[in-house]
Design a protein around this nucleic acid. Structure first.
Lengths: 119, 119
DNA sequence: ATGATAATGAGACGCGTTTTCAGTAAGCTC
DNA sequence: GAGCTTACTGAAAACGCGTCTCATTATCAT
């Protein structure tokens, strides 16, 4: 795993994203900010960051940046902004096991609503 | 909104799905079970069911069937089975508003782990 | 039964993503 | 620092999922 100009640049840009973004938007931002980058490299880097848990892939070709560690997302249905919160919203593991015989390993949750700016 | 053979068939098949499925899998199942159906119709019907909340679209072209009403999903990482649970413990709306200035309208949560059969 | 029109199906199309492959550059070794 | 190995990159081609088009079919109100 080598450290390249492109990876450094893309990783930095991703960590600054406050909204969901597309690969092409990241591509444009990268070329404006730090010189030539290929679109294929953008996709390859996003795939790497996804396996690291730094990026999550939503539907319709959109991505969101994630801090490592447990958290959930507050998605504004008005402006599309995505915030993170450590407030956790999952049923207790013991309760799920008792009721369903299912052993929860991890979970994902997204809260949808209206953010402070839009309210 | 007309009742057609295709819609009836696809809606029935979807309601029986216990796992995540792709549009093409549903297409195959439909042709095996009830005569010719076009792939375009499968996509159109899935879109209808999605707006009704009977289907949710995951990433990578996969879909899951949903019962109407509030619930979450238990996704088995071993066999791919999807169960529903009414267990829910979202952070209180007031807490999220206090902490983030964000007004939660609804939320989605998926719990990943190992189901009873696979354990 | 008849007519208006919603729905369908086959294939064309669009576009986001992955793959290919030759050229480039990171970083180890000496 | 020079040389070497090979991971990485970029441009273009290929791919594939999902949507759209449009002629045909079928539903349902009258």
């Amino acid at each position: 795993m080598r450290t390249t100009r492109q990876r450094t640049l893309l990783t930095e840009l991703v960590s600054k994203q406050q909204h969901a973004f597309t690969a092409e938007e990241l591509w444009t931002a990268a070329r404006e900010a730090g010189g030539p980058v290929g679109l294929a490299t953008v996709y390859r880097t996003l795939a790497l960051l996804e396996t690291d848990g730094r990026v999550r892939r939503l539907d319709r070709g959109r991505f969101i940046a994630c801090e490592p560690g447990h958290h959930h997302h507050l998605v504004c249905t008005s402006c599309g902004a995505v915030e993170e919160t450590e407030l956790c919203s999952a049923p207790p593991v013991t309760e799920v096991r008792k009721r369903h015989g299912f052993v929860v390993q991890h979970h994902e949750a997204d809260l949808y609503g209206v953010c402070g700016k839009c309210a």
